[in-house]
Simulated scan of single mutants.
Amino acid sequence: MTRICVAGGTGQAGREVVRQAVEGGHRVAVLSRRPPAPGEAGRDNGAQYFRGDVTTGEGLAAALAGADVVFDCLEGQSGRALKNFADGGARLLAAAQDAGVRKAVMLSIVNCDRSSFGYYKSKAAKEQVYERSGLETLALRATQFHSLLAGVFAAGSRIRLVPVVKGARFQPIAPAEVATALLEAALEAPSGVRHRVVTVGGPEIVGMRELAHSWQQATGARGRVVELPLPGGMGKYLRAGLNLAPGERHGTQTFEGWLAMHADSL
């Protein structure tokens, strides 16, 4: 049995790591700034929850005590969290090293080091922190989650317009399948390589317009699908197909399959 600490274990991917680790018989500690109370949604009764903050170091030692592996599923999408994202990773790794943790695995984004978009740049900066760490580390880069696309379509449909980025294709993947890949990478035998980068993508590559139509069919949402140019770093990233990993098709859950599974909550 392995003791696992999941930083960000209340987020989309983190919850899946926690669930699968508990089901696998591992002892799981969850580190979160706002851990859910007993009985609240998002809490796994088989895990132990700790309140902590990687931006200050508060609570890290208690959550990491006795851990063999730490997962970094934290997000920092805006404001102070985005600004301090890489520094938070360094603080988590330092605390992990002090606690005797043997391996650290972080969730990252495909080709994040080739994007000028701020959120993706923060992921690349944290990867560099992991590469410099004294621990054995691994950055698992994933393509975009199915839920990201569903969220974009849902936001636009409120004004009866479903936005599609001109020329964009996606290779979306289910958070559960990313969590499986994270666990497999964390629990494998020591590789002898101090730092590795691994990429996982969804099972199929589909144009954004086709994905929008699939979403409309699944949800019954009305609205005109509108193709729009996307300026800036994210637009350049998508136009270049850097959000894709054609040679790294993992899992089996397509966007349509994910929509069918989550029909009641869309």
Rank of each mutant, 00 (worst) to 15 (best):
residue 75 E to C: 11
residue 75 E to M: 08
residue 75 E to P: 00
residue 77 Q to R: 13
residue 77 Q to T: 09
residue 78 S to L: 04
residue 78 S to H: 13
residue 78 S to A: 14
residue 79 G to T: 07
residue 79 G to Q: 04
residue 79 G to K: 05
residue 80 R to P: 02
residue 80 R to S: 10
residue 80 R to K: 12
residue 81 A to H: 10
residue 83 K to D: 13
residue 83 K to C: 00
residue 83 K to M: 02
residue 84 N to K: 06
residue 84 N to V: 04
residue 85 F to C: 04
residue 85 F to E: 01
residue 85 F to M: 04
residue 86 A to I: 11
residue 86 A to R: 05
residue 87 D to M: 05
residue 87 D to R: 14
residue 87 D to P: 00
residue 88 G to M: 10
residue 88 G to A: 04
residue 88 G to C: 11
residue 89 G to A: 09
residue 91 R to D: 02
residue 91 R to P: 01
residue 92 L to Q: 02
residue 92 L to W: 09
residue 93 L to Y: 11
residue 93 L to D: 03
residue 93 L to F: 11
residue 94 A to P: 00
residue 95 A to V: 11
residue 96 A to K: 09
residue 96 A to V: 11
residue 96 A to D: 06
residue 97 Q to F: 00
residue 98 D to F: 01
residue 98 D to A: 15
residue 98 D to L: 08
residue 99 A to G: 10
residue 99 A to Y: 10
residue 100 G to C: 12
residue 101 V to D: 08
residue 102 R to V: 13
residue 102 R to M: 05
residue 102 R to C: 09
residue 102 R to T: 14
residue 104 A to K: 08
residue 104 A to D: 10
residue 104 A to G: 12
residue 104 A to S: 13
residue 104 A to E: 05
residue 105 V to E: 02
residue 106 M to S: 15
residue 106 M to G: 10
residue 106 M to A: 15
residue 107 L to Y: 09
residue 107 L to M: 14
residue 107 L to Q: 14
residue 107 L to S: 04
residue 107 L to K: 03
residue 108 S to P: 06
residue 108 S to C: 07
residue 108 S to T: 14
residue 109 I to Y: 13
residue 110 V to M: 03
residue 110 V to L: 04
residue 111 N to M: 03
residue 111 N to S: 15
residue 111 N to F: 10
residue 112 C to M: 06
residue 112 C to E: 03
residue 112 C to T: 11
residue 113 D to F: 04
residue 113 D to C: 01
residue 114 R to K: 14
residue 115 S to Q: 09
residue 115 S to H: 09
residue 115 S to I: 10
residue 116 S to T: 15
residue 116 S to G: 12
residue 116 S to M: 06
residue 117 F to M: 11
residue 118 G to C: 00
residue 118 G to P: 00
residue 119 Y to V: 15
residue 120 Y to V: 00
residue 120 Y to K: 01
residue 120 Y to F: 15
residue 120 Y to C: 01
residue 121 K to A: 13
residue 121 K to I: 04
residue 122 S to L: 01
residue 122 S to Y: 08
residue 122 S to P: 05
residue 124 A to R: 08
residue 125 A to P: 01
residue 125 A to R: 13
residue 125 A to D: 14
residue 127 E to M: 12
residue 127 E to A: 12
residue 128 Q to G: 12
residue 128 Q to F: 01
residue 128 Q to S: 12
residue 128 Q to P: 00
residue 129 V to D: 03
residue 129 V to M: 05
residue 130 Y to A: 15
residue 130 Y to I: 00
residue 130 Y to L: 15
residue 131 E to L: 12
residue 131 E to G: 09
residue 132 R to K: 15
residue 133 S to G: 09
residue 133 S to V: 07
residue 133 S to H: 09
residue 134 G to Y: 06
residue 135 L to A: 12
residue 135 L to E: 12
residue 135 L to P: 12
residue 136 E to I: 06
residue 138 L to D: 00
residue 138 L to K: 02
residue 138 L to V: 15
residue 138 L to T: 14
residue 139 A to E: 01
residue 139 A to W: 07
residue 139 A to I: 07
residue 139 A to C: 13
residue 140 L to W: 08
residue 141 R to A: 08
residue 141 R to G: 02
residue 141 R to Y: 07
residue 142 A to K: 02
residue 144 Q to E: 12
residue 144 Q to V: 11
residue 145 F to D: 02
residue 146 H to L: 05
residue 146 H to M: 06
residue 146 H to F: 09
residue 147 S to H: 11
residue 148 L to Y: 15
